[in-house]
Design a protein around this nucleic acid. Structure first.
Lengths: 316, 316
DNA sequence: GAACTTCATAACGATCTGTTATACTGACAG
DNA sequence: CTGTCAGTATAACAGATCGTTATGAAGTTC
């Protein structure tokens, strides 16, 4: 006995509403269509599904049981419809993002949480990597979106770059670092302290090498490397070490009052934080929504940084 | 976005099996039918449901989510089919039985349990009543089956009677009753003990009156009445009282060694225990199965009683 | 018992389904 | 690189089914 699922749904509607006419209305059908379905079902099943001549229409036990299954289908069908609707406006789906560890940990994770306040049914799968990996992952359709610093000369055939934050590095240290007591710390002083190197593969690592060499270091004294942001921060909290970090990452930690940036200007890398997407990516509303959210989030961040620095200047 | 449920089921089958061809086979369809459904779905939804050119066919997140709903429907559909199959052979459904209290309590309840060992999905709704109520309940389609003693002259227009046990009453007492010590108790002795009367409405009540009067009682000394079987048994356990009961009911209690029948013959009532059904009752396999089970159960009981009495005689 | 509501049936056009036949595409081997 | 192979998409068609309107039958209510 194989059923047409639609028939069971019609049965369920009739049982639920207690009448053929009402059941038909519930499904947006004309009454005779449903009536015919019921007759057909009873003939196929060979058992009465309703007690005839009773109003409100009373189902037999078998009719009732069958209707329950129909109701399950009706609910599933409705859910499927809702799913597509919410997917269309970006309210459901999956967003697979990849990015460099520091940015992800310091900035993106929090943004994800904020995003899901308004998009609770969007799942976010996060992964880590540096530009070459991320580019490959994008092209292999393993991620929808990459957030990473790119050199202005990086070529991304088939990729779209959207710059969201200018590249700007600072030297980070704990808030009790002795160098912060000097009115105008000199680059040469920096070489007196142990250094933490960013993980291999990070563009920051190259920045650090260039920086230290420009300060006249003959050899680079690395005490610790390879840790994630949390490791680096915890290390910094416990020692007068120094490291190089994107300004925005240090800025995002300002509330914690554990690390800060030395008031010393170092060269801008020719680089910018960007959102990378495939130009031929399959359209996904949730991804679009998330990307837009990240863009506006970083725009706010830029303003915050600007105001923060102005207040510091005025505060001087 | 309204879906044809069948389409979602086809989608689910394809996702589940990992291929259009296999999915079609799972549903007993040709491959092009399913292929067309998928194209149509993608066009309607406006989003890709599968990553093209991948084998095994890989669904997009949206495709996967939709397929899950389809799977729910497929499962519900299968369950509905199974339900009808099991209903057809009487393995599921509802059986509404009514009967006289003593028989129901002593014999039928246990039979119900035995029946459900082989028919676990059949629900049994039990209610109590005497012949007039049961006949009315049958005609009003409130019960499917009545089990009660009927007078041979009861007319049951529109009802079918199936006799399952001849009428035979005994005088019941506790196993320690003093009358059991007498070799051949005389009817007159019976009047020396207090009597329990069956509930009003029970045909046993009339039997009791007739019996006592035939023994020469001028007035009927009733000490207790109206209780269910359990009450009567518990009363009997605690006093040297007597009562009248169907032999089968006393017999069913033999294992308990609490009550027994006095070895004294009393007149057969012109009555028999029967299964009553409406002749125009809607066909219900579960009811048929149950009725057949009850019939065979009582046939066994008859044999048991016969063998038991033979052994008692040989034992003498 | 009359008015009213609800359900069943009939007839019909449009749609959709499932089929077979066939062309296309990606995967794999030599 | 190319031929083969399995799997998928497309085309065309016959038949079933759906949903509709119109109308008759049955039941409920006052």
């Amino acid at each position: 006995m194989k059923f047409d699922e639609r028939h069971l749904i019609q049965l369920a509607a009739v049982v639920k509403t207690g009448g053929v006419t009402e059941g038909a209305a519930l499904l947006g059908l004309a009454q005779p269509a449903v009536s015919r379905t019921l007759s057909m079902l009873e003939k196929r099943v060979g058992e009465p599904l309703f007690v005839r001549g009773r109003r409100p229409l009373q189902p037999t036990p078998l009719g009732l049981s069958l209707a329950e299954h129909g109701l399950v289908m009706l609910a599933a069908s409705r859910k499927a419809s809702d799913l597509v609707e919410s997917f269309r406006v970006g309210k459901s789906g999956v967003v697979r993002i990849g990015g460099t560890p520091f940015f992800m940990d310091a900035l993106i994770a929090g943004l994800c949480a904020e995003f899901q306040a308004s998009h609770p049914d969007v799942r976010i799968d996060q992964s880590y990597g540096y530009f070459p990996d991320l580019r490959a992952a994008l092209k292999a359709d393993q991620i929808d979106l990459a957030i990473c610093p790119i050199d202005i000369l990086d070529e991304g055939s088939g990729l779209e770059f959207q710059q969201i934050l200018p590249g700007r590095n600072v030297v980070a240290c704990r808030v009790t670092h002795p160098l912060l007591l000097k009115r105008r710390p000199q680059p040469s002083h920096l070489l007196d302290y142990p250094w933490i190197a960013p993980p291999p593969g990070s563009p920051l690592l190259a920045d650090l090498r260039a920086l230290l060499l420009s300060f006249g270091a003959t050899e680079i004294k690395i005490r610790y490397s390879g840790g994630s942001l949390m490791s680096v921060i915890n290390y910094l909290k416990a020692a007068d070490a120094l490291t190089i970090m994107p300004h925005s990452v240090v800025f995002a930690q300002r509330k914690e009052k554990t690390i800060t940036a030395l008031p010393i200007t170092i060269p801008h890398p020719e680089r910018a934080l960007a959102i990378l997407t495939r130009v031929d990516a399959p359209h996904s509303p949730a991804v679009d929504q998330f990307a837009e959210f990240v863009r506006s989030g970083f725009q706010n961040l830029r303003h915050l940084i600007k105001r923060h620095e102005e207040s510091v200047i005025w505060g001087l």
